[in-house]
């Protein structure tokens, strides 16, 4: 049985860990994300070069990797990562396409973020995590599938922990929820002390209510 060891959520400009607010940011997305970055004491200049998707994912993942580091987990070798969202990199795709549409040159600094897995890539670089990572795109998270993949990473691929995170800044086609993006929800899963994780429990963490 897999346990939920901790979870983070970033919604309405509030970043929380296990339901306790860590920091608040206000204003437009970029300003809000920058305020949260400062408020949780991150010092990582690369953050400012990233697109909003990667910044959002990095912020939501940060408290969980800090916990892992404090607990002495083998982040380099034994922590898997599954990232998810509904819109891929759509907002950055639009930013890349705008100048090209007008016949101008594309920006390489924007283009490199037009892939949905760059959030996962930035997380692995930030934390020196060499283990498996996978990026899945769907309208809604599929908690049964995610728990199956998580269990397999732990049971047969030698991981002690898996982080599963949804982060999105762009409303998806069949969106019916409140328009309060950006939203991120991340779960730290493993066999350590925690609460048994059910598909419903995982769904609740990964979904904006």
């Amino acid at each position: 049985m897999l346990n939920l060891l901790a979870s983070t959520r970033l919604t309405g400009g509030r970043l929380s860990l296990n339901g306790n607010e860590l920091a608040q940011g206000h204003g437009e997305d970029a300003a809000m994300l920058r305020a949260l970055y400062t408020a949780i004491g991150m010092d990582y200049p690369k953050f400012h070069k990233m697109d909003a998707y990667a910044r959002l994912a990095l912020l939501a993942a940060e408290p969980l990797y800090r916990m892992l580091r404090t607990d002495g987990a083998d982040i380099e070798n034994a922590v898997g990562l599954i990232t998810l969202n509904g819109s891929g990199s759509a907002a950055t795709d639009v930013e890349h396409w705008e100048p090209v549409r007008r016949g101008e040159l594309a920006s390489p600094a924007v283009f490199v973020y037009t892939l949905p897995n760059t959030g996962a890539g930035e997380i692995t670089i930030r934390h020196g995590a060499f283990g498996p990572s996978i990026c899945l795109i769907s309208e809604h998270p599929d908690p049964d599938l995610l728990l199956t993949i998580t269990d397999d990473m732990i049971t047969t691929q030698g991981m002690t922990h898996v982080i599963v995170g949804w982060s999105d800044i762009f409303a998806t086609p069949f969106w019916s929820g409140p328009p309060t993006l950006p939203f991120a929800g991340f779960a730290l899963i493993g066999h350590g002390a925690g609460t048994p994780l059910t598909p419903t429990g995982l769904q609740a963490i990964l979904t904006q209510h």
Partner: peptide, 24 residues
């Protein structure tokens, strides 16, 4: 968006569910 493509494929190909989209 990729979920839109997946959903259109589900309908047109009469699949049990929309394809799982891997984007690495």
């Amino acid at each position: 968006l990729l979920p839109s493509l997946a959903e259109r494929i589900r309908v047109s190909a009469s699949l049990h569910a929309a394809p799982i989209v891997v984007s690495n």
